[in-house]
Design a protein around this nucleic acid. Structure first.
Lengths: 207, 207
DNA sequence: GTCTATACTCTGATAGAC
DNA sequence: GTCTATCAGAGTATAGAC
């Protein structure tokens, strides 16, 4: 447990906990107001720490935001990565839709953080979009294209099929207040969306 | 033409033109950064007017934003209003999808302004969402429900069907940079989307 | 109608006591 | 590690000359 070396890196438990508290509060604020609209004062208030204390744990506002985005991208792409070229085509895509909707339901703040960033022209993640993301989508699109060629999936432009999954699932997180305002009380948006999207993609994809 | 009354309201041509210049610049800035992230300095620079001059035409930043939102809502709901209960069900819905996608293509800034507002919890248009918008959607959902009952349209939850049209069409405006980054060069996203969405909704809706 | 100058507040970041 | 105090710059808005 003891760490005798003088200039060591590992964080203490209290440091870990405070960093997490800050990142959690920052996610609240950044996801609601975007990078420029968010203030350290708000993050300080939500986290319960003082503003200088925030800047003891992170060198700058920019750095807190960058940390959140870095963690996000991995979580965000996991469901698509899990699409198995060896599985049953329709079942695989439906499972992807299901996982992506779960992500919207369980991590709506992350969805909105990402939406804010892309809406603002993605200045901080453009490289990731044109790099990792494009490679992954191209790769999985090729899998879809092959399934279509073999007649095991309805013929559709694979990239746009993937866009449609993103659009439909993220809508329920990003436009949550609109969805609830229009549905009115007594609804469970995500449960209804889960059934609806299952029907939609089944009809669309079964050859 | 002459207006002899001393304290009259009508704006001169130069006033009209300057107000439009300001609103156009403000749309650029607000749609990219959201309300809090936008600054009067940016709007002044884009419009080519001085900052105090902005505030000669509008009493505050808040008021410029409010003006944009008010104009927006009408434009935004027009395509759904035009859905004709007397027309052919599948054709009517497809026409709605088409019109909504055209709106995304021709007014992407308006789409992003709206998206920013809803992402931030819609503090300034909550009343409109729960009022006018909900009434309109409830009304058109009833039309869809009747068509489904008559067997002229596939059975689906009408509200979620409308959400899916919003999600799929707005995605191409709001996530434009992501769509282009993933597709790579040599694509026309809106032309491809138009064909894709036609196929998707035709398969989904034909009973 | 438009500009310069400026008042006043907020925001990100730092210094230094404890 | 955490706080109070504070700075420099940016932000909205106003006053007043032209």
């Amino acid at each position: 447990m003891a760490e005798p070396t003088p200039a060591a890196r590992p964080l203490t438990r209290i440091q870990q906990k405070n960093r997490e508290t800050i990142l959690n509060a920052a996610l609240d604020v950044f996801s609601q107001h975007g990078f420029r609209g968010a203030t350290l004062d708000q993050i300080a208030e939500v986290s319960g720490l003082s503003k200088p204390n925030l800047l003891y744990y992170f060198p700058s506002k920019e750095e807190i935001h960058a940390q959140l985005l870095a963690t996000l991208m991995d979580t965000w792409l996991a469901p698509l990565r899990a699409l198995d070229p060896g599985g049953d085509p329709v079942a695989e895509v439906l499972a992807y839709v299901h996982r992506k909707l779960e992500l919207s339901r369980d991590y709506p703040r992350e969805s909105r953080l990402f939406a804010n960033e892309v809406l603002q022209g993605a200045p901080r993640i453009m490289a990731g979009l044109a790099g990792d993301l494009k490679r992954l989508v191209d790769d999985k699109s090729e899998v879809l294209r092959r399934w279509m060629e073999e007649g095991r999936l309805a013929e559709l432009p694979p990239h746009h099929l993937i866009f449609s999954i993103w659009a439909l699932t993220q809508h329920y997180a990003d436009f949550d207040v609109q969805v609830r305002a229009v549905l009115g009380p007594g609804h469970d948006p995500y449960a209804e969306a889960d059934r609806f999207l299952d029907t939609l993609f089944r009809r669309l994809l079964v050859p």
